Simulated scan of single mutants.
Amino acid sequence: MGATTTVPRVEVLRDRYRSRLPELLQELDGPVEGIVGLPLYIVWSGRTSYSLDRPKSRMTLYRTVLAEGPREDLEAFLHHRLPAEQWPVLRRLVSLCIREVWEDAFPELPRTAPADATAA
């Protein structure tokens, strides 16, 4: 019998997320305000509508689309401004695989939290 090589699960996930990336963050041209409803193939249970005007709701939408959406939906539901501005927070809400793939592809995403202006 021949030896079977198996690809580690983490590599399968990285390849999956990598294949859905836009070429540039600017290709993310989704809405920046209002209510967004996600299709059931992205969010199959629970809440399907998200308010972009509420930070927690907006971050939940982004986390869900980054994890489950195909490239077309990343481009349709996400706007390039949010990942660029909010990545230090958003990166803690997504899986390690998603975080690594996005940070490798887009070096402009900040890797650390901004300095606290009130800290002495």
Rank of each mutant, 00 (worst) to 15 (best):
L90S: 05
E72Q: 12
L38W: 10
S49I: 10
P55W: 10
L78W: 00
E75R: 15
Y41R: 04
T60D: 11
I35H: 14
R47M: 12
L52Y: 03
L90G: 04
R58P: 01
R47H: 09
W87A: 04
Y50S: 04
R54N: 13
H80P: 00
E85I: 07
E100K: 14
P83I: 04
L52H: 06
P55Y: 09
P88T: 02
S95K: 07
E72M: 04
G34K: 06
S57Y: 00
R63N: 09
I98V: 15
V43D: 00
P70A: 05
P88R: 06
P39N: 00
R47G: 03
P83Y: 03
G30V: 11
L40F: 04
A84N: 11
S45Q: 14
Y62N: 03
I98G: 08
P31D: 13
V94I: 14
V32C: 12
S95P: 05
C97W: 01
E85M: 10
E85A: 13
G30Q: 09
R54I: 10
V32E: 15
L74A: 10
P88S: 07
V36G: 02
P39K: 02
R54G: 04
W44S: 15
I35Q: 15
V89G: 09
R47A: 10
P55Q: 14
W87K: 05
A67V: 02
L74R: 13
R54W: 02
S57G: 00
T64W: 00
C97M: 05
E75F: 02
R63V: 10
V89H: 12
R81H: 07
L90H: 03
W87N: 02
G37N: 11
M59C: 04
S95T: 14
E75D: 06
E75A: 11
S51R: 11
R81Y: 06
I98W: 06
P31N: 09
A67N: 00
I98F: 08
Y62T: 03
R71P: 00
L78G: 01
D53R: 11
S49V: 11
S51K: 09
R92F: 06
R99T: 03
E33C: 13
V65K: 05
V89R: 13
L52S: 08
L93D: 06
R58A: 05
S45P: 01
M59Q: 08
L38N: 08
E72A: 12
L82Y: 14
H80K: 09
R58V: 01
P88I: 03
I42F: 05
E100L: 15
R91K: 13
Q86D: 10
Y41I: 00
R63K: 15
W87M: 05
R92C: 12
S51N: 14
L61F: 01
E100T: 15
A67K: 03
R99F: 02
G46I: 12
K56D: 15
P88F: 02
A67T: 07
Y62W: 10
T48R: 13
P55F: 11
H80N: 08
V43A: 04
V32F: 10
S49D: 13
F77N: 00
P39F: 03
R58C: 05
W87G: 02
M59K: 07
L74T: 07
L82F: 15
V32S: 14
P70Y: 01
V32I: 15
L90A: 08
R99G: 00
Y50C: 07
V94C: 10
S45D: 11
I42M: 07
